[in-house]
């Protein structure tokens, strides 16, 4: 039970994922990190079969997704896109109900199970009191939780999140990340594209680091997150230290990035900061 990517090539016109081979083990909360344009979102969309593969295979729980009907995949994998479209004239309850679509017939008639899963999802994400509100009237944070509840109602073993914290303020960022952690604790396998390395280190059990359309490193945050890795992948000189609250790794850029300052100078400045 895992997501296996073998020799994947995919992507929009110019940009391509290049020979990506990786296994995302079941039960992990995997964070995809890397600089802008490194292909992390492309990889997530490829796993969700939103982008066609030029070569290679994606297997989810052993099944080749290229041969599966879209609806069958939707019963395995829930996706929260980077920019979910807010549907006009739809209440939160209706939106969360759409999460049941892969389990329903053509007309979307709700069964008892559907109703229970919808209730449970609204409770899990703590938006039961918003169920009759229009999605278009919600704040950014509430909206993101509503879409997350839709993914929960979909009741899939795998959940893919594409930058779930973007455009949210710090409170809502942590709220969404903590919800993600709760889902993970409830047994779901989660793959999230995250921009913030600190978030990734704090919440993920597994990191997949990408650069230029290739896999650069994988491992637990404690194993692989080093100043060397960050410099090689992001081209940014940093110090890595333990978060005083959680002990997870945090990254802080070294202030002076002028090329005229050599390695030595920067290191001295670092020491000076200690």
């Amino acid at each position: 039970m895992s997501i296996e990517l073998t020799d994947i090539r995919a992507g929009y016109g110019g940009f391509m994922l290049d020979q990506v081979t990786a296994t995302i083990k079941a039960g992990e909360l995997t964070a995809l990190i890397g600089p802008n344009g490194c292909g992390k979102s492309t990889l997530l969309k490829t796993i969700a079969r939103q982008l066609p593969l030029s070569a290679g295979t994606v297997r989810i729980s052993g099944r080749d997704t290229a041969r599966e009907p879209t609806k069958a995949i939707a019963r395995q994998v829930a996706v929260l896109p980077q920019h979910p479209v807010v549907p006009p004239g739809i209440s939160v309850g209706q939106l969360v109900g759409y999460g049941r679509a892969p389990h329903q017939n053509l007309f979307g008639v709700r069964s008892r199970t559907d109703q229970e899963k919808i209730e449970a999802a609204l409770e899990a994400v703590a938006i039961a009191d918003l169920r009759d509100r229009m999605v278009s009237e919600l704040s950014g944070g509430q909206r993101q939780r509503a879409f997350l509840a839709m993914c929960v109602a979909q009741d899939t073993p795998y959940v893919l999140l594409d930058e779930p914290t973007s455009f949210l303020d710090i409170k809502y960022q942590y709220e969404v990340l903590e919800l993600t952690e709760t889902l993970h604790a409830a047994g779901k396998t989660i793959v999230a594209v995250l921009h913030d390395i600190g978030h990734a280190a704090r919440f993920a059990t597994n990191l997949v680091v990408m650069k230029d359309g290739r896999l650069y490193a994988t491992g637990t945050p404690n194993q692989i997150l080093t100043p060397e890795l960050v410099e090689q992948v992001y081209g940014l000189r940093t110090r890595v230290y333990a978060d005083p609250v959680t002990g997870s790794k945090m990254v802080s850029p070294v202030p002076n990035m002028q090329p005229s300052l050599g390695h030595e100078t920067a290191r001295t400045m670092c020491v000076g900061l200690d």
């Binding site: 969700a48 679509a101 007309f107």
Partner: peptide
């Protein structure tokens, strides 16, 4: 009609919900 409902969530979400 239900496919049209899912379509309102955007192409990515519609695909993710099996339509």
């Amino acid at each position: 009609s239900q496919r049209l409902n899912l379509m309102a969530l955007g192409q990515a979400s519609a695909q993710g919900l099996g339509a």
